[in-house]
Amino acid sequence: MDKILVGLKRVVDYNVRVRVKSDGSGVETDGVKMSINPFDEIALEEALRIKESGGASEIVVVSVGTSEAQQQLRTGLAMGADRAILITTDDAPDVLSCARALLEIVNREDPGLVIVGKQAIDDDNAQTGQMLAALWGRPQATCASKIELDGDKAIITREIDVGMERIEIDLPAVVTADLRLNEPRYVKLPDIMKAKKKPLDEIAFAELGVEAGPQIAHSSYEPPSERDKGVMVDDVQGLVTSLKDRGLL
C-alpha cells in the first residue's frame, strides 16, 4: 500500500502519578512530563515495520492538540515516520469530534491502513479507532497483537477476554494496537536531528469544518477513595490466622 496513517496523542507520561487540582477543576499537568501515548508508540512501530518489510511506502503521523504536540510528532518523525500533521486546537475536543477531524485527514490522505493505540492512558476511553472506523464505514480490528497483510486484506489477531481471536478485514481499515503487538524502538540522536528537517504541517481544527459532537460535561474531578491501611504479618502462620479471622478460609 502507499500509505499508513498513525495517530499519536500527547499524554502525561506513563510514570507520572497524576494529581487532581485542589479545586477539583481538572488534573495537574503544569510542569509534568509529557510523552507519546504508549499504545500509539506501538502503533507507529508497527507501521514502521510494515514499511521496512516493503508493505508500505509512506508513514504519516497525525495528532490533535495544542502546538506543544509538535514535540510528540517530532519524536514520531525521529522514530522513522516520513511526515506529520498536527490538527491544532487549544480546546480538548471530544472523542467524536476528534474522530471526525481524523476522518477529514483520512479523506485527504487516502491511507491503506490507519493504526492507533487501543486506548490513551490519560482518559482511558478506548474509543477513537472504533469511532473513526464507524464514520469511515470501514472495518475495525481493536486490541491487535498481530497484523498479517495479504494484498487488499489483512488477518488481525486480537487479544480478547477469553484469549485470542483472528478476523479477516478488507483494506483500508482501522487497527488499534495492543501491548504485545511489538516493542517500540528507541530513538537515536542522529534521527532526532534528521527529524527536524521532515515536514510537519499544521491545520487548524476549526478549518476542517468538523461538527462538534454532543458535549459530555466534565463537572468535577476527585481522587479515588483510599483503601484502609492493612496489617503486616510475620509469617505464613500469621497470614493463615488473619485470613481465618476474616472468614476467608
Binding site: P139, V162, M164, E168, I169, A173
Partner: peptide, 8 residues
C-alpha cells in the same frame, strides 16, 4: 468487509 476466522 469484516469476517471471523477463528478463536483460541
Amino acid at each position: 468487509h469484516t469476517r471471523f476466522v477463528d478463536a483460541q
